[in-house]
Design a protein around this nucleic acid. Structure first.
Lengths: 121, 121
DNA sequence: CATAGTGGTTCCCTATTTGTTACCGAGGTT
DNA sequence: AACCTCGGTAACAAATAGGGAACCACTATG
């Protein structure tokens, strides 16, 4: 099972999607793309993400080479996050997705309401 | 919590992403985009998805107005799925993401290996 | 009679994800 | 001395995702 026969690219797309395709990763990239450099607690406040999930998400993004982490060993410590070159290049498809989302949000809501009404009756 | 203050669009993007952003939805859209019309068991075979998840995914996509379902009351029954106009428009950002994924898969793998090695030592 | 084929739905169980809370260290502030 | 800040980590609890198998209706075929 799960051999995805018949759609060879599906498996690879699937691979990448399961890495960078989660909600928080995308939102972190969007935030960093907009603001350039952000500190840990700035991201946390901006996104309304829990400390734990932000920590995990940033660690994954750093591991995948999309985000660069700069640690300043001051007291209190200061850590800055920026996009790497690959992270920058990720902006384009993500922006495309974001724009589509904003443009089609109302259509989706309308479709949902219509569907729910037609099912309920 | 979770008020996403400071990034008003984030919440909305988040909304849409949590609807159409899961792995199976994306793969179903890709398959339908490529083949035009597919039946339930064709999708199931192509994607290696379980019957349950395919059923749930298709129902959601239909509800969101991305997929159109045509039921032929023959014996045995025949159901055909196609993309709606909005589903077609979703192809573009998804394709962009797919191309990025294919282009950067090896880079991500390399970054991962480098990161893991630097942490392990 | 039994079986297969089609498009599901429902129940059960497990695995993964996500959130909550508490805690840390080192130095500065009150 | 007590408390605050920053950037996390560890432990625990809850929610969700996902697979597998069984079942359904209906009919044609062997």
């Amino acid at each position: 099972m799960l051999d995805t026969a018949g759609c060879p690219d599906c498996k690879r797309i699937n691979d990448v999607l399961s890495r960078v395709g989660d909600r928080w990763s995308v939102l972190v990239v969007i935030s960093l793309a907009r603001d350039g450099t952000l500190r840990f607690n700035e991201l946390k406040k901006n996104l309304g993400i829990s400390q734990r999930m932000l920590s995990l998400t940033l660690k994954e993004l750093e591991r995948d080479g999309l985000v660069h982490r700069t640690y300043h060993p001051t007291i209190p410590p200061k850590v800055e996050y920026t996009l790497t070159e690959m992270g920058q290049s990720f902006r384009e498809p993500v922006s495309a997705l974001g724009y589509w989302a904003l443009e089609n949000l109302t259509k989706i809501d309308a479709a949902r309401q219509a569907y729910d009404k037609s099912v309920a009756k």
